[in-house]
C-alpha cells in the first residue's frame, strides 16, 4: 500500500524542500520506490535542490491538464535507483492545482510507488492545502524559533481539519516533528529552544533533529540531496530520520552537544 507523506511547515525557509529531497533520497537508498512532488507552483525549487533543473520538460500542471502524460513528466534520478521527481510548473499560479486533478495523479502514482513525498509550499493557502490533502503522514519541519513553532501549530490544526482523512472521518494524519537548523550548543547556553521544549509546545512525537550544518548549503549549491553526502552530519541525521520512519530503533545522536570533560566541569 502506497503511503503519501506531506512535508509541511507553514513558515517559509525552514527546510521543507531540503527535507523533501533528503528524505525521499533516503527512502530510495533503502530500495523503496519513491517519488517526490513539488507542490510549489509558480516558485518551483525542488528541481534545483535535486540537481535536475535542466531535465524538466513537462510538469505537474501539464499532467493535470492533459498536456503531457505522467511518464513524460517524471524525472528519474541519475544517482539513486527507484527515485523520481515530479516538478512543479514555474509559469502557472497555484490555483492550477485542482483537487480532482491532484487526486487523479495521486491514484496513478499510488499504483507505481511505495512512498509519495509531497513538498508543500509555504503559507496556508490553496497550494499548501493541496499538498496536505491526500496525506497519510506528515513531516512538520520546524526551526527552534518562535515564529516557526507558532506556524507549525497552525499547520497541525489544518492537518486535523482540512485533509481528506479529516473530512472523510478516517483515522487522522500521522504527524512527525522534524526539528531543523538545530544547534545543541545554543540550546546548552539557553539561547535556543530545546527539542523537548518544542515537542512539549506542539505535542506531537519527535522524529528527529537535523543539526545546523554548512553541508546543507553546500549540497543545495551542487544540486545533491544532503543524504548523499557521507561526510555530512545533517545527511547522517536525515538517514537516521528515514530509519526511524521505517520503524527501526535508532537513538537520537544530534540532540546532545558532545562536550569535552573540561567544558562539562567548568560549564559553558
Amino acid at each position: 500500500m502506497a503511503k503519501i507523506i506531506v512535508v509541511t511547515s507553514g513558515k517559509g525557509g525552514v527546510g521543507k524542500t531540503t527535507t523533501s529531497a533528503a528524505f525521499a533520497t533516503g527512502l530510495a537508498l533503502r530500495g523503496h520506490q519513491t517519488v517526490v512532488i513539488d507542490f510549489d507552483v509558480g516558485l518551483r525549487n525542488l528541481d534545483l535542490v535535486m540537481g535536475c533543473e535542466r531535465r524538466v520538460v513537462y510538469d505537474f500542471v501539464n499532467v493535470i491538464n492533459g498536456e503531457g502524460n505522467l511518464n513524460q513528466a517524471l524525472i528519474k534520478d541519475k544517482r539513486v535507483e527507484s527515485l523520481f521527481i515530479l516538478p512543479a510548473s514555474q509559469t502557472r499560479d497555484k490555483e492550477a492545482l485542482t483537487m480532482k486533478g491532484v487526486a487523479k495523479v495521486m491514484e496513478v502514482l499510488k499504483k507505481r510507488f511505495e512512498y509519495i513525498i509531497c513538498d508543500s509550499p509555504a503559507g496556508i493557502e490553496h497550494g499548501a492545502i493541496m499538498a496536505m490533502y491526500f496525506a497519510d503522514e506528515a513531516l512538520i519541519v520546524t526551526n527552534p524559533e518562535v515564529s516557526s513553532v507558532r506556524d507549525s501549530d497552525r499547520i497541525i490544526g489544518m492537518l486535523s481539519s482540512k485533509t481528506r482523512r479529516a473530512v472523510q472521518n478516517l483515522p487522522p494524519v500521522k504527524e512527525h516533528l522534524l526539528l531543523t537548523r538545530y544547534s545543541s550548543k545554543r540550546v546548552n547556553t539557553g539561547d535556543m529552544l530545546s527539542a523537548q521544549d518544542v515537542q512539549e509546545i506542539l505535542a506531537i512525537p519527535l522524529l528527529g533533529v537535523i543539526p545546523e550544518s554548512k553541508s546543507v548549503l553546500q549540497a543545495s549549491n551542487a544540486g545533491i540531496p544532503v543524504t548523499l553526502d557521507k561526510n555530512s552530519n545533517a545527511g547522517q541525521a536525515y538517514l537516521d530520520v528515514v530509519a526511524r520512519f521505517l520503524g527501526e530503533e535508532c537513538p537520537q545522536r544530534f540532540i546532545e552537544d558532545k562536550k569535552g570533560f573540561f567544558s562539562r566541569l567548568f560549564g559553558s
Binding site: 518562535v146 540550546v187 529552544l193 521544549d197 567544558s263 562539562r264 566541569l265 567548568f266
Partner: peptide, 23 residues
C-alpha cells in the same frame, strides 16, 4: 558545570522566555 553553582543568578535565558510566550 561545577562552577555555575557559585555564579550569581542571571535573568531567565531567552529560550525560557520563548517557551513561555509560545505556550
Amino acid at each position: 558545570g561545577f562552577f555555575n553553582y557559585f555564579r550569581a543568578t542571571y535573568p531567565p535565558k531567552t529560550a525560557t522566555v520563548a517557551k513561555e510566550r509560545l505556550q
